[in-house]
Amino acid sequence: MIHTGDDYTHPVGPEMNFNESMYFQFYDPEQRLGGFLRLANRPNEGVGERTVCLYLPDGTLAFGYARPQVHGNDAMMAAGLAIEVAEPMHKLRVTFVGDVSMLADPRSMIDPKRAMSTSPTVDCSVALEYNALTPAHEQTFDGDGAAFAPNHYEQLATVRGRISVGPKSFMVNGHGLRDHSWGPRSWQAPWFYRWLHGSSATRGFMVAYFGDPDGTSRRGGFVFDDGRLHPCVDVEISTERDDDDYQRTVLVIAHGEARSWRFDGVALSSVPLRHRSVDGSAHTRIVESAVRWRCSDELELHGMAEYLDQIQDGRPVGQSV
């Protein structure tokens, strides 16, 4: 059971891959501006992970990644990104000051070293305030084997603030989702997963599907509707892919105790990211897509579709979902 104190950092566990991470997604439909920021502490490894990913209105991508030195877990602050808990479980502030690469083609991140070394860099600043729209939803999707996110909750929020990228500045007034997890994490632990979410002022959702090599799966999430959260008892996901095996359209049917909801998503922009195992033997691909969702009553939401797959024989393993 989570409590308000869980919005802060936690004691470091003995696991070498102990990870504490916070993720903040947002979208402003008036500005047609969205993206996410993520910061992770991995103190027993001495490093962190910092990602800034902004989908700009003209279709370009502002992207920054760093692996700063991290030797403790007292605060979420590294490589220019800082997270302040102003009121636990209700109000958090996210700020970033640093450089980002400007990518004309977000898919060029399939070769990140080349994409970022050949793209211009500009100054970037972010100052966003997240105010809770719903209570936090707690659910772990860990199964047998290596852990991925044993302690985990998510929350829909209103998002307001300002973003500057080079000479351009935007006032943000939108909605989004924040995610907080801690404990041992291996990016190679899931065989594949689908993590999908969207939000607006009156409705939102987060669903996840973790698939295993034997065909079993763990599914869950929530839908925010009628002013309250409805935990999911089952989730159905169907994906249409493009020639790069990236998600093009996604159909989600989220089943609650008493009713079901349908969300039809279209990927607006996709960024391929990757993680390699420590010994370099395993290759994990994560495709981050900004998505426009439509409900059955035509209400429009915006959010993300994150598809993680282990790669075998050059192909992602989760083609069935």
Rank of each mutant, 00 (worst) to 15 (best):
E87L: 12
E87Y: 09
E87W: 09
P88F: 07
P88N: 11
M89Y: 06
H90V: 11
H90P: 03
H90Y: 11
H90I: 11
R93C: 11
V94K: 02
T95S: 15
T95W: 02
V97C: 12
D99L: 13
D99G: 09
M102L: 15
M102C: 10
L103V: 09
D105K: 10
D105Y: 06
D105N: 15
P106E: 09
P106K: 04
R107L: 08
M109E: 04
I110A: 15
P112C: 02
K113A: 14
R114W: 07
A115Q: 02
S117Q: 12
P120F: 11
P120V: 12
P120R: 14
P120L: 13
T121W: 03
V122I: 10
C124W: 00
S125K: 10
L128K: 02
E129L: 07
Y130G: 00
N131L: 14
N131H: 11
N131P: 00
A132I: 07
A132V: 07
A132C: 06
T134Q: 06
T134A: 05
H137P: 00
E138A: 13
E138C: 08
T140A: 13
F141A: 11
D142Q: 08
G143S: 13
D144R: 13
D144S: 12
G145M: 14
A146P: 11
A146S: 14
A146L: 15
A147Y: 07
F148N: 06
P150V: 08
P150F: 10
P150W: 08
N151V: 09
E154G: 08
E154Q: 15
E154K: 10
L156A: 11
T158E: 12
V159K: 03
R160D: 12
R160T: 15
R162T: 14
I163F: 06
V165H: 01
V165R: 03
G166V: 05
G166R: 02
P167E: 14
K168C: 09
K168Y: 08
S169F: 06
S169Y: 07
S169W: 05
V172C: 04
N173Q: 14
G174D: 08
G174M: 06
G174N: 04
H175A: 08
G176N: 07
G176Q: 04
R178K: 14
D179I: 03
D179E: 09
G183H: 00
P184T: 08
